[in-house]
Design a binder for these strands. Structure first.
Lengths: 346, 346
DNA sequence: ACAATTTGCGCAAACGTTTGCGCATGTCAC
DNA sequence: GTGACATGCGCAAACGTTTGCGCAAATTGT
């Protein structure tokens, strides 16, 4: 009656050892019982009852550090994102964290801030901490480090990836996204298109450009003019690129911004110039954000399938971790089609 | 020449043991040298050089799990937020993660989704994982669990807190925020104010209400009317509360939304009613978000000092962890004044 | 040449688990 | 009464570290 309400239940000092002493059973037996392997190891009813009761009473929680050391399994996975601040990544992180929790894993979070050294640090730290797996939004252009890491522990890339590697990834189908955005602009009657791109070297960016250009070329309409400009997923880039073309002799009648940040910059420039959206100029963006619906006008955009990306990547990783060897049925490089959400900006 | 470029450098199999074998020095010596305690333990120059060289060559990384078991220090801290999705929390998380990284800690992230059971799960998990400390945005109204936890491991609350506890926290000075927002509205000439509140039971909410009411009462202007309505930090709440009062016999001429989400809902309602901001109705919000500047009109708001909160809390926690006992000079319950950012919405 | 001191390093225990193996005792068949 | 098998449980090693203690050899003092 007082053991279960003991006010001084120093929450941390309980161990198999202490329970063993109090119940009179050996540490091994206690361990097996509390691991739920009582039956399996033919531990008697008496023992099982006594031990579970005592564990309950003293609020025993296994030391996952010790367990991890012994079993080499930490039930922890590492997640790197280039900026948890960025709504797209925090959304991904949220999905992944919650999905992973359901599967019995905790997450170690690292923010790489788009810096390769920080990414390297984070990955090394993950290794030292013996994570069971890693989900990463890679920064930088070289897969080297990640490939090395993936020889020690399962790695799944999300959102970004490297060409010519076997590293598994799941990302948006950026080509398709570029294609659909551009087709939408063309369908709406725009004929002088400008794409403002982000980080030039990143695959997502390259794919979007490819989609953009293919859409124009395959449109069958020889009258369409188009250009690609800009460098960097920043609103400065959006602002300056837009300003430049608006003041040039050949201003576009529609802008395809490769990210929300770029779009915001463009929007500012357009407003400064006093142009009306969507009549003077149309705009379409690439990203998710609930705020986009509250802008004036609400922004038409290609939304990335963040939930699917997050869930697919997590499932994939967990399969790699727990799977009885690589199950060959597993496709390791997946891209998921984004979808158009119409605002009134084009 | 080839040991440092060994392609088969199985990144994980290196241990003090293997280095010990290859160098001929004992595990203890290797440990001491690699811990940088060579001098301190009077290890010879030869040994130090050989060992560091070998460790370098084979890219040795200490096993932090084993180290943690032995030293009872994991250099990991747990962070719970009620929704990493929410820009305010992801912003906090970002600040904390990065600040903590600089101090040599990694972070275990848990999303509690505003649910007390999930918070309890997360905290227990943190305990099992032997985190060195915890930073939490508590959900729920009862400090019980967190107080119990804080007897085992340092805990610092952020953003929200409990009255009548000694749990250390650092949060926005919500009273001051409520006060300044309301004073601003009054200064701008509004005379019929409506506050749309969030979670009624939370301290931040209560304090904002108190600030709101005090500002009106202390204004010396008997002509000012005011009311508080709503329940929940959601846009639905914002929308419905606004709709109701706009359709009532006594519509307000200014709205003080207690969060961005609430503000967005209110904004929708106002637009639907065809009212002009700020002439027909003024609006002021409470939160941070870069998007607020891109709305039409840009929203005037009380910005929370997230960076200070994050950094202060982190420093506080680390001091508690590493400090030579509680340094008495330490004030444990801190609130930081938010500041007004003017848009054109009132 | 011998004691005292310093220098350089290793032994072994400990952290809290898990798990292969094996030892008692009890039960049954004959 | 003996062998065979089932039942119930414990011993001890192992995971990779850190660290108190202490021992041997080298150096110094006298």
């Amino acid at each position: 009656m007082d053991s279960e309400t003991d006010p001084e239940a120093m929450t941390s000092k309980e161990s198999l050892q202490t329970i063993s002493e109090r119940t009179g059973y050996s540490v091994s037996t206690v361990s097996r019982v509390l691991a739920g392997k009582g039956e399996q190891y033919r531990i008697g009813r008496r023992a099982i009852e006594t031990i579970t009761a005592e564990a309950q009473a003293c609020n025993y929680r296994p030391d996952l550090i010790a367990k991890g050391l012994r079993t080499r399994k930490t039930n922890t996975i590492g997640l790197t994102v280039p900026g948890i601040d960025n709504p797209f990544f925090s959304n991904l992180a949220s999905i992944i964290t919650n999905h992973l929790k359901g599967l019995g894993y905790n997450i170690l979070l690292a923010d790489t801030m788009e810096a390769e050294e920080m990414e390297a640090d984070a990955l090394n730290s993950f290794l030292s901490r013996k994570v069971d797996g890693i989900i990463a939004v890679p920064v930088g252009e070289s897969p080297e480090m990640l490939e090395r890491i993936s020889r020690s522990v399962p790695v799944v890339l999300i959102d970004r990836y490297f060409p010519d590697t076997t590293l598994p990834y799941v990302c948006t189908d950026n080509y398709y996204g570029g294609l659909s955005a551009t087709r939408h602009l063309i369908r709406k009657g725009y004929r002088n298109l400008l794409a403002i791109q982000g980080v030039l070297t990143s695959m997502p960016n390259k794919e979007r450009v490819r989609g953009f250009e293919d859409a124009v070329r395959n449109s069958g309409d020889k009258g369409i003019r188009y250009a690609v400009t800009g460098d960097g997923f920043s609103s400065e880039n959006g602002y300056e690129s837009t300003m430049k073309v608006l003041e040039s002799g050949n201003p576009p009648d529609a802008i395809f911004a490769f990210s929300t940040t770029i779009m915001l910059g463009a929007l500012t420039a357009i407003r400064e110039k006093g142009l009306k959206i969507p009549d003077d100029i149309g705009i379409i963006s690439f990203d998710n954000n609930r705020f986009l619906d509250y802008l004036d006008p609400p922004i038409t955009r290609i939304e990335q399938p963040a939930p699917q990306i997050g869930r697919t990547a997590t499932d994939m990783l967990v399969k790699m971790i727990e799977g009885s060897q690589m199950e060959d049925s597993m496709e390791g490089q997946i891209s998921i089609r984004p979808f158009l959400v119409e605002g009134r900006s084009c």
